[in-house]
Design a protein around this nucleic acid. Sequence first.
DNA 1: ATAATAATTTAGGTAAGACTAAATTATTAT
DNA 2: ATAATAATTTAGTCTTACCTAAATTATTAT
Lengths: 223, 223
Amino acid sequence: MMKQTLTISIQDYLKHIYELTDDGKPASTNALAERLKIKPASVTGMVQKLASAKPALVEYQKHQGVTLTKEGERAALEVIRHHRLLEAWLVQTLGYSWDEVHDEAERLEHVISEDFERRIAAAMGHPLRDPHGEPIPTADLKMPLEDSTPLSAFRPNQTGVVQSVKSADDDLLRYLEALGITPGAQFEVKDYSSYDHNLTMKIGKKTSVLGLNITSKIFVEES
Amino acid sequence: MMKQTLTISIQDYLKHIYELTDDGKPASTNALAERLKIKPASVTGMVQKLASAKPALVEYQKHQGVTLTKEGERAALEVIRHHRLLEAWLVQTLGYSWDEVHDEAERLEHVISEDFERRIAAAMGHPLRDPHGEPIPTADLKMPLEDSTPLSAFRPNQTGVVQSVKSADDDLLRYLEALGITPGAQFEVKDYSSYDHNLTMKIGKKTSVLGLNITSKIFVEES
DNA sequence: ATAATAATTTAGGTAAGACTAAATTATTAT
DNA sequence: ATAATAATTTAGTCTTACCTAAATTATTAT
Ligand SMILES: [Mn+2]
Ligand SMILES: [Mn+2]
Ligand SMILES: [Mn+2]
Ligand SMILES: [Mn+2]
């Protein structure tokens, strides 16, 4: 159980690898590069380093992409817990809106102490989700099981509740908020177009037509 | 008016140069190195860089030490404002004690946004001093004038009020708190020893004898 | 005024983490 | 099965910010 502090860069790599391997498949060099906004060549270099670190943080084989080791996953969950707790805290105590919190949390996540983490978690009563509806890893670094499907899989007459919005795009978040699409919102699917995959949805009194680009980022529970 | 973000290292150099030049005299290479906990040779290198930056951040001549330019001073005050607002914020909203806040603020000061700065300042009602009694630079980056003298200059029968404690040593801070020596505390000097410069002080019901090492770090106003 | 000492600077190196350009390997379409 | 294309890796640079060792300059004591 090594407690050596990982660099901010490494923390970001691990966090993004965690998110990219959510589907069980290894994260590709290019996908990681795009997420991290750096060049693929740089990713290869770092990934090789992480794979040969004292306790290896990732599993890596040339051209096969990367996955996290147990150690790497722990470190990733630590960063994700920081990030999501911070987002919740910024909203709850400083009046940030859900489209403003991500960038601030992105920088704070790497520098807060474990003590700070504990204090904000306790101050908020140990919240289970961040402002976007994403689950917050527990203090012992277990990621709560998710039970939600992408809205894009829904079809007319199905109803449900919005659980989370997986996006850090502040324009999109403001747009969705204006439509009433935020965690907890109830909706009914009214129409579906097989050509462009548009979904017509009723939320409250509003009816909105959403493209696949959006519906694939909204996760919901059927009801 | 350049808004290019300075590196964390540079921000720390400027902050420490500000504090070291408080007395009007330039900061020496060695003094800076000690504060920054790096080697003097490294300080020389950085200081040369800061002096020849696009808008120069410091004034520097070989063997003469450094002082801040207007630009450098602005940047230093920005960091110091962050630091002190953060310390106040940590105490007021998360229950930190005055001996716990410094290290946390030391890391956060470099990554919070101007928006975050504004929000915590407003949430606290724009406090004038940090938990150690140090003045917080205003939003337009003016350092409030200080009107306090070191306790070490006091002699028997003089009375006063503690204004600030200039120390980041958490052991010392806890010790002083136990003696009742915190900002706002009233005291009377009972005795002075010219041999060791010890001062015997009465604070509330407690009487304590403090050495020069401590009395030179406590700043007070006579009353 | 000199010599010893202290402070500072120069020179040369290292480690992180990025980049570009070129080479290699995989995948896809013909 | 080949050829074209896409993804990935290698090799070599660059910048930042440190370091050590050696040289230089300043200060202090004799
Ligand atoms: Mn986020
Ligand atoms: Mn980050
Ligand atoms: Mn402080
Ligand atoms: Mn700092």
